[in-house]
Amino acid sequence: MLGLAAALPGCGDLPQPFRGQPGALATRLARPPAYRLAVLPSEGALLTDAEAERFARELAEALMAQDVPAVSGSSFPLDWQVVATAARDGRQVLPRYALRDADGSLLGEVAGRPVAAATWAEGGEAVLRQAAADAAPELATLVARVDARRRTGDERASGGGPIVVLLRPVRGAPGDGNTSLTARMTERLAGLGMQVQDRAEGAGFAVQGVVAMAPAAAGRQRVEIVWTVSRRDGHDLGRVLQLNEVPAGSLNGFWGDVAFVVADEAAGGVRDVIANAGGFAPPPAPAPAAPTAQR
């Protein structure tokens, strides 16, 4: 059976521009934004792959300059996403930017300033940086407007009710491991008092499990399962790591009881990571004992 579950602290190298210094956007909205933007390289921006990656970096940096928390290239399950596209119109290229929530629903779009087609095709750092700088203020305004509107809606994740967790399907397991582990983890987290769902809306935390298999000595396989816990603002809160060795090929079919054991151990680690991040309210103080009657 798999064992050796360990909770690891979150990485500290992710941009956290609002931690301690909320900035102008937070001042306008009364508290720091409850989201992070992931700017994804786009295949529809009439750029090479390398230029698309560079443009994503430039746009993320321009958004950061507007006090919007943003990263490029990769995302956590609760991140909102910005995808840039471009269309040619005569001698001009018209950039366009779509803002989507973590479930992929369109929140709004912003049209960028036209760029000469020859200039856009030539690309280069200066051209992409200018396009990003032109688009960032309008994108920041759109994000602030959407965030302010959403704050008048569902606030379950910030107090009162159960902790709401987005559980992404497990990836990388052989056999029926992805399905079995996801189902058993859903049951175990729910058994610990969390509200588990497969959509991002309303969730305060996200959990993603990834399985990696590697050969080991004497006909055995090394199994590594990492459960990453993240928060809506993109902060990586921590990881629960499970390591073990099993007979080679023994998990290529049904996981059965192994999935129950894995989920049982991992769910406790996930609970601890969320608790350490302040996700659970402290238990009420015990009532003082009644005085003993004197005879």
Rank of each mutant, 00 (worst) to 15 (best):
G177A: 09
T179P: 03
T179Q: 15
T179Y: 07
S180D: 15
S180I: 15
S180C: 10
L181A: 08
T182K: 01
A183W: 03
A183F: 05
A183R: 14
R184M: 11
R184Q: 15
R184P: 05
R184N: 11
M185L: 15
M185S: 05
E187L: 12
R188M: 11
R188P: 09
R188G: 07
L189Q: 03
L189G: 01
L189A: 05
A190Y: 07
A190D: 12
G191K: 06
G191P: 01
L192Q: 11
L192H: 11
M194A: 10
M194Q: 06
M194Y: 05
M194S: 04
M194T: 04
Q195F: 09
Q195Y: 10
V196E: 02
V196P: 07
R199A: 12
G202H: 04
G202V: 03
A203C: 11
G204A: 00
G204V: 03
F205E: 01
F205T: 02
F205Q: 05
V207M: 01
V207D: 03
V207F: 00
V207P: 07
Q208D: 08
Q208S: 11
Q208M: 09
G209T: 00
V210F: 12
V210D: 14
V211N: 07
V211C: 11
M213D: 03
P215K: 03
P215I: 01
P215V: 01
P215Y: 01
A217M: 12
A217R: 14
G219T: 05
G219E: 04
R220G: 10
R220D: 13
R220C: 09
Q221P: 01
Q221T: 13
R222W: 08
V223R: 05
V223T: 02
E224I: 11
E224T: 15
I225K: 03
I225P: 02
I225E: 01
V226P: 00
W227Q: 04
W227D: 00
W227G: 04
T228L: 08
T228K: 07
T228Y: 00
T228Q: 09
V229D: 00
V229A: 02
R231A: 12
R231Q: 12
R231W: 10
R232Y: 02
